[in-house]
Design a protein around this nucleic acid. Structure first.
Lengths: 152, 152
DNA sequence: GTAATTGCAAATACTTTGCCACGTA
DNA sequence: TACGTGGCAAAGTATTTGCAATTAC
């Protein structure tokens, strides 16, 4: 029944409400667009592009693409969202949840994106780089590319 | 005592001549543009964008940007070049040399890109993913982002 | 000679901004 | 009221393609 709280990331439940509160703390206003965007990102199992977000069920009738763009921009600045490359022409965005890190497995044929289930083996190297190079605010991005079984 | 037979990077000398020969084997024609492009990529310590390549010393007077684009496209198809994300709006390209793998350390402020000197710790996970998911042609991309000492 | 390759220009795709109206605090 | 935010349209940047001329083999 009791949970052990060790140093490794504990799966934590994050609510849209929490996120909005955190946004308001740094000066963002509570708007319908912000709520819907955060909800959509939170519900998504994978990073999404601006176009995907802007045309998603919750947002398409709700607000303009430029609005979503500017929201993502603000959220990225404030550190609530991270912008990922993932090799497509369009950028991908994902919620940044403290203590949670995700790597991705991407099919170069059909473009499917799924989270890697295994633990990320890069933290030690990241620490080494932090110490040796003096870089600040260090983080990493790790993606695996290949042809998925369906496309093979 | 865990001696792995991982393809450790054998420092191999690669000449433009070799690369051109390999290109010809797969049907590409020996053109001035191809030579200059391969030379430029080979001399570069880091991946380069299409614009950088097209306006580089060797290529700017040599050929059109569309030509460089199509060359990179063919070289990528043939597996001689890899296209990387690296978080910028433009894609980056780098020569793909068998047995050689490179991770990058990128400053989010000034955009500088440098190769990581330490060995990449991802090969085992890559193998695990290959086995568990059935993905083919698997490879990975690992980048570290942060603020470099100069920009801090 | 034939097919691949090139240059130029035009078309796409994705991102970003200007401006003024609007809503939140 | 004041200032952050939103919608719409236009501009900006990177990529991609069509086509006729050229070049490698």
């Amino acid at each position: 029944m009791s949970e052990h709280h060790h140093h490794h990331p504990t799966p934590q439940i994050v609510s849209v409400q929490d996120m909005i509160d955190r946004c308001r703390e740094v000066g963002l206003r509570r708007t319908k667009a912000l709520e819907e965007l955060l909800s959509t990102l939170l519900e998504s199992a994978r990073p999404m592009t601006l176009s995907e977000l802007a045309s998603s069920e919750r947002l398409t009738t709700q607000c303009d693409k430029a609005t979503v763009f500017r929201l993502l921009q603000r959220l990225t600045e404030k550190g609530f969202v991270r912008r990922l490359g993932l090799h497509e022409r369009a950028a991908y965005f994902t919620l940044l949840i403290p203590g949670r890190h995700q790597d991705y497995l991407i099919c170069t044929e059909c473009g499917s994106i799924e989270p890697v289930k295994a633990p990320c083996p890069v933290h030690e190297l990241e620490e080494e780089i932090r110490v040796k190079t003096g870089f600040r605010n260090l983080y990493h991005e790790l993606e695996f590319f290949g042809t998925c079984p369906k496309c093979a």
